[in-house]
């Protein structure tokens, strides 16, 4: 059994439909076996079309800023250079999911809401969403553990942006509130 139930969501960008209609919950699971049964039967992120997302969130939290668990939160963002899609994307997304379902963030684990992988032509992104952007100790602990679990270089940095800041920036990236 897992600590909590999780839901996998899939987003496919079809411009004729509203954003929310393009977001579908695939399934829920609450055991390690059911996680692997799901993982072994869906496409890897690197095989998805540009414009698609997967999101894995605690059951009951929708993968959008507006959800009450997300609206005060933010995300640790890992931006991948285009050439990394074939090298690192699938492993980084799997390790992100294993951190989530294994509750790898210690006492701050409940502050982790979920994660999203965006497949984009200009560069893929993986983001870990947390509940309270102002909880510095929690956000920093989660960021340090996450960076280590992904095996990112000491020289690399990842930034944390509050959703409230991201939501008001349509094109350029929101400022980093924290960096590890």
């Amino acid at each position: 059994p897992l600590m909590t139930s999780w839901a996998l969501w899939f987003f496919k960008n079809e411009r004729s439909r509203a954003w929310r209609e393009n977001l579908q919950m695939v399934t829920r699971f609450d055991t390690v076996e059911d996680f692997w049964a799901l993982y072994n039967n869906i496409k890897l992120p690197s095989k998805l079309s540009p414009g698609c997302d997967y999101a894995l969130f605690r059951d009951g939290i929708e993968p959008m800023w507006e959800d009450s668990s997300n609206k005060r939160g933010g995300r640790w963002l890992v931006s991948l250079a285009k050439q990394l899609r074939h090298l690192d994307l699938d492993r980084l997304w799997l390790d992100t999911m294993l951190c989530l379902i294994g509750e790898g963030f210690g006492d701050y684990g409940p502050d982790v809401c979920g994660a999203v992988v965006n497949i984009r032509t200009k560069g893929d992104k993986i983001a870990l969403w947390t509940r309270e952007a102002d909880s510095q100790a929690s956000v920093m602990h989660i960021g340090r553990v996450y960076k280590e679990r992904l095996g990112l270089s000491m020289k690399a940095t990842i930034g944390y942006q509050a959703h409230a800041d991201t939501a008001t920036k349509s094109n350029s990236l929101a400022r980093n509130k924290f960096v590890v």
């Binding site: 059994p1 897992l2 600590m3 390690v32 076996e33 996680f35 692997w36 993982y39 072994n40 390790d95 294993l98 951190c99 379902i101 294994g102 509750e103 790898g104 684990g109 679990r149």
Partner: peptide
């Protein structure tokens, strides 16, 4: 309550178990 925590090694081993 009790926290259920699994490390990467355990989770990966579960993938391959029958």
């Amino acid at each position: 309550g009790t926290r259920i925590i699994y490390d990467r090694k355990f989770l990966m081993e579960c993938r391959n178990s029958p």
